[in-house]
């Protein structure tokens, strides 16, 4: 297919964007538009499919084919789009409630099949469009309109959910971390099979302070772990901390800056086990890991589905079958 040179601006639909001022979605939108431009396909070869929720407004703001579907069903609709026309770059935009609560079943089966969908799950840990109910990623004890005494549920960890399903591309980004997000999306754009990106995203009205420690220049280096293939898992303002897997139990080790001990893990994104361990690190014992946790090659479902063992027959031959008879 011909490569085209479009810019992120070309992917703006020009419609007024109706998210709240300060919403983390604006940053993600511009990052994805940039990633699309980087894919080099003409406009008509993109389809953005979403479910229901704040994030799912996304297709209206992108100048491609778009489908704002039903609550939770975006991966299912997108699967049909991709199978019907595998040439399309199909992006799925969903949220924590949409993708992991009402749509959890579709999400896990899309990942199981390794179908070529680029799924970006905006995780703001709250139901925002319905104005503030607990979601499946709401942290324990969080007070919301439906959990006035604090959330009781144990939450999902979306990236770990995907890693546990052997997703062939698992990553986590943060809305305000533009270079980090761009690096993930650029790699996601060329991945074969299912991409699952958890985008941590603050919601101004309902989870405004949720990710402040990851953003505040005073605290962010202690709270964010940047995961990169082939590099040691080191963090901290002084680069004096690292992650070691001691008998499959991750732990934080401290060391003098610059002298990374051998037990600090050199990350391997092709390892399913490492992806599972790293995605499971949570605060307060660990920093929040971001970056590409897993990237491996495996045939995509739409490629397998397109294979045919026989040549098509004519309609008359097909209808006649093998045991027809004539009535004279």
């Amino acid at each position: 297919m011909e490569k085209t040179r479009l810019t992120a601006k070309d992917f703006s639909s020009g419609l007024p964007v109706k998210w709240c001022p300060g919403c983390g979605n604006f940053a993600i939108l511009s990052q994805i538009q940039k990633a699309m431009a980087g894919m080099g396909l003409p406009h008509e070869k993109y389809a953005v499919i979403s479910g229901i929720g704040c994030s799912s407004r996304f297709p209206y703001y992108v100048n491609t084919y778009g489908f704002h579907t039903m609550h939770g069903r975006a991966p299912a609709v997108a699967t049909g789009v991709k199978l019907a026309n595998p040439e399309l770059a199909v992006w799925v935009v969903t949220g924590d409630g949409d993708g992991l609560s009402i749509g959890g079943n579709h999400m896990l089966h899309a990942i199981r099949r390794n179908i070529g969908l680029k799924i970006v799950l905006f995780n703001n840990r709250i139901y925002a469009l319905t104005k503030g109910q607990a979601s499946p990623t709401t942290q324990p004890g969080t007070k919301t309109k439906t959990t006035p005494e604090g959330s009781l549920d144990f939450p999902f960890n979306p990236a770990r959910f995907a890693a546990g399903l052997d997703c062939t591309f698992v990553a986590r980004g943060i809305d305000f971390d533009l270079p980090g997000g761009a690096a993930i999306l650029e790699r996601a754009a060329s991945h074969r099979g299912t991409v699952f990106i958890e985008m941590l995203q603050k919601c101004v009205p309902f989870s405004d302070k949720e990710f402040d420690p990851l953003k505040d220049p005073q605290t962010r280096d202690e709270n964010v772990l940047r995961v990169e293939h082939g590099k040691p898992l080191v963090f901290g303002k002084e680069k004096n901390k690292g992650i070691a897997f001691r008998g499959f139990r991750p732990g934080v080790v401290e060391f003098p800056a610059g002298k990374v001990p051998a037990e600090v893990v050199v990350y391997d994104e092709t390892s399913a086990e490492m992806a599972y361990l790293i995605s499971g690190l949570t605060q307060p014992d660990f920093p929040v890991p971001v970056g590409v946790f897993r990237a491996v090659e495996k045939p995509a479902y739409e490629e397998l589905a397109a294979e045919r063992s026989a040549a098509p027959a004519g309609l008359d031959e097909l209808l006649a079958g093998s045991d027809a008879w004539d009535v004279k």
Binding site: A47, V81, K82, A310
Partner: peptide, 30 residues
């Protein structure tokens, strides 16, 4: 399948109809 037929055994009834709607959006007879 050889007759330009894409058969998709979905994970549930909802995905079955939703994938078909997606295929119609992408131009197949669904």
């Amino acid at each position: 399948r050889a007759q330009d037929v894409t058969v998709f055994q979905a994970e549930d009834e909802i995905a079955a109809v939703c994938s078909s709607i997606g295929a119609a959006f992408a131009g197949s007879l669904a």
